[in-house]
Design a protein around this nucleic acid. Sequence first.
DNA 1: CGGTAGATTGAGAGTCCTCAAGCTCTGTGG
DNA 2: CCACAGAGCTTGAGGACTCTCAATCTACCG
Lengths: 268, 268
Amino acid sequence: MSKDILLFQTVASVLFMNTILSNLVPCPPACASCQLRKTGAFTPVDANELAFIEAFRSGTLALQAGDTLIHEQRPSGKLFTLYAGWAFRYKTLSDGRRQILNFLLPGDLIGLQQEFTDGAMHGIEAVTDISLCVFSREKLWDLFRSYPSLGYDITWLAAREEGMVDDNLLTAGRRNATERVAMLLMHLYRRLERLGLAHDGSVAFPINQQHVADTLGLSLVHTNKTMRRLRRLGLHEIRNGRLWLRNPKALQQLADYYDVPLRKVPLL
Amino acid sequence: MSKDILLFQTVASVLFMNTILSNLVPCPPACASCQLRKTGAFTPVDANELAFIEAFRSGTLALQAGDTLIHEQRPSGKLFTLYAGWAFRYKTLSDGRRQILNFLLPGDLIGLQQEFTDGAMHGIEAVTDISLCVFSREKLWDLFRSYPSLGYDITWLAAREEGMVDDNLLTAGRRNATERVAMLLMHLYRRLERLGLAHDGSVAFPINQQHVADTLGLSLVHTNKTMRRLRRLGLHEIRNGRLWLRNPKALQQLADYYDVPLRKVPLL
DNA sequence: CGGTAGATTGAGAGTCCTCAAGCTCTGTGG
DNA sequence: CCACAGAGCTTGAGGACTCTCAATCTACCG
């Protein structure tokens, strides 16, 4: 830590420091100044809806990389919208084998299944430092009653996430290691790009090979060898926490990936 | 076909014949006489809601085993509730590899993702002859607006189905062949049991080993060898289209399966 | 009795996994 | 300024699990 930073720390709160050090983007105090909505990736809401969302929101929350937002098995009582950073949903078997179900990126609604699903639960863990808007579950019914349009949006989000898990199941069940890696790279790149998070042909890529392995249902070693090969073939490059698709065409073909028209998505 | 049947055919419509021959249970003309609701597996609705559902329903449909209800890629414009029989959701890669995403049993809502999901679509195929209630998608928004409680129910169903796909992803990604088979047998048995479809310790089991393989992400041959072994070990038995769990404890342990308290589920 | 769908089995080949080390980079402490 | 520890990435080797190919067998149907 440099002298300047140390000096700075004497006048800034530790919390704020963490923010600076990790590049965490905190949630804005009011939904009106939400930066996510300005990306154009989300469906617009009218003033009334926005006001309701604002009232629905019970606060914000910041977690550090590696923290657990929702524990497997333990119901959470809250809903969240991920505002900044990466997280993932996962399930584990009792002997520790872990499967990542899907990654959560800014704008994703978190915790909906906790309420409804009757199977065992899933956990949610932060990949990077993250900031979230918090909603209380008790008010969810109010939302459906008062603003059916928002209820409709929530159903949309639920169905969209299911579609994502569907894709991951197809990948884990029927693609080989090479195809799986290619699929994941394409999928994440496109999602981030849609959010306007691609810069100079690259996107942030904060996950490690263990995350990739747990997502794809592969071992760490085989994941490594597969990614290494794809990199040697010049298909992609991961460096300094960023991902470049050096040959998207080839990756797309390998993965049997189809680009879909980017639709706007609801944002709560 | 026996003489009696041939004789009978002369006075009955072919459609009706199909019904008889396949044991198809047709949808009742009115929701008030819905047999599914009487099973006790579903959350009760009040008279107003029931009336709305009745109005929402635009008709019924019967399909034969093997028929495709919704084609991959092609949007369907309709929603369905499966009334009787088995179906499944699936996705395929362009070279034909198929992954079954989840099985659909009586009471399951079908086609919700078609509206919302932005990835490629999934197909839906009938395993047995099936009968369905049909709803027009245009009225879905009406439903949310007029009966927020039903909108809430639909979100519930969407989240519940996602939970099921989550489980299947964990299975395909992290369980070995033996565990996968054990998991599927437990899962299907419990779901059918909950619907009151277990009789004398067995449930209908109309799927073949190719279905099992496509569900679990295994090859047909390896699926066969695995199921054969479990049967030799006395864990289960499949005969005449029915499934017996001869040793549920062992299956449960193998699969790392946890029985969950059976909650009532909404029914549209 | 031939034809077809589905279940079985054997054999050999691959893909993927586990075990075991090294290597690189970064932050920490002496 | 360098040794050291920890996290993450890489590589090699051998073995286990699954896959593909090829038949055979059974049950049911016309």
